[in-house]
Nucleic acid binder design. Structure first.
Length: 283
DNA sequence: ATGTGTTCCTGTCCGC
DNA sequence: TGCGGACAGGAACACA
């Protein structure tokens, strides 16, 4: 499911419910997700105050008063849903337990945070807050695309010499952390760059043009609450709506929306992932 | 080192 | 309506 905008949307939805609150109860319904859950996870969460809820790439980090942080990845189908609390003007009652509710946290204000993940590609771990960035899942990540370290000098250097298509390069979390299949497709469309273009042969000017476009697409998507295709829900259960702004993703066979373009959106497979693009606009 | 294919898992959709 | 296959927003891992 989630790329950076969806994870950021989830973070913002959880924030007012969990930040500063104590985890009164932690229910862990199975021993593993993608990997084994940490030892004694329920005990290590219970009674801890959530000091902050951060995001790094597609990971959430809940900093706890114990000095540990709960690291969460939503994988492909993971959701974090809030209930039992006023959200805006509406009260979200606790829903009936659902299949694939793997972890349920009850806060001291009565709110409940339910981690549901049908495909179980998600992950959780507990890590010391100090030095959390050295966790094996985080240590090799590239810069945040919305951060200052991600600029055209960085991107040009990072793409240099790479013989992989630009589509695959931008999906590589070591190069830049947080883009996924949807947003890479949308970025390359807006940039007018063919997904087949070899990363290392992309002219510097064109590589530089990607930086503001990446920022723009991600910012717009966050503003829209992410993209909801199948699984993504905001923490309050509502759908994001950036999917209505897709220009190419999941639009195979539809006419290109660019003014004056008579092309048709195509779908190809690169490194095992679908790529959607307009062969007319993207060169 | 860098690139690609496979794999994990469940659910949904589409064609027959 | 059932069944089989393709496909799904990720990314670690094995191997060329």
């Amino acid at each position: 499911m989630p790329e950076l905008p969806e994870v950021e949307t989830v973070r913002r939805g959880l924030l007012p419910v969990v930040e500063g609150r104590v985890i009164a109860h932690a229910q862990v319904n199975r021993p593993d997700l993608r990997w084994p859950l940490p030892e004694r996870m329920a005990e290590r969460l219970t009674g801890q105050r959530v000091l902050a809820l951060r995001r790094r790439s597609k990971y959430l980090l809940a900093d706890l008063s114990s000095g540990e942080s709960l690291l969460v990845h939503l994988g492909m189908s993971g959701r974090m849903l809030v209930s039992g609390v006023m959200l805006g003007e509406f009260h979200h009652d606790h829903p009936a337990p659902q299949k694939h509710d793997h972890v349920v946290l009850t806060m001291d204000n009565g709110a409940r945070v339910t981690f549901n993940d049908a495909r179980r590609f998600g992950a959780m771990d507990l890590v010391e807050t100090a030095g959390a960035e050295t966790h094996p899942l985080l240590s090799a990540l590239g810069p945040e695309p919305l951060g200052n370290a991600f600029d055209d000098a960085y991107l040009t250097a990072a793409l240099k010499g790479r013989r992989t298509p630009i589509k695959s390069a931008l999906l590589d979390q070591h190069l830049v952390a947080g883009l996924g299949n949807i947003y890479v497709c949308e970025v390359l469309f807006r940039a007018g760059i063919s997904p087949r273009q070899l990363a290392g042969e992309l002219p510097a000017r064109r590589a530089a043009s990607l930086v503001p476009i990446i920022r723009e697409v991600l910012a717009e998507a966050i503003e829209a609450g992410g993209s909801s295709l199948r699984d993504h829900r905001q923490a309050n259960g509502e759908l994001g709506y950036f999917q209505h702004a897709f220009r190419v993703y999941d639009r195979e066979g539809q006419p290109c929306s660019a003014p004056g373009c008579t092309g048709t959106i195509a779908r190809i497979v690169q490194s095992g992932r679908s790529t959607f693009f307009c062969p007319g606009c993207q060169r």
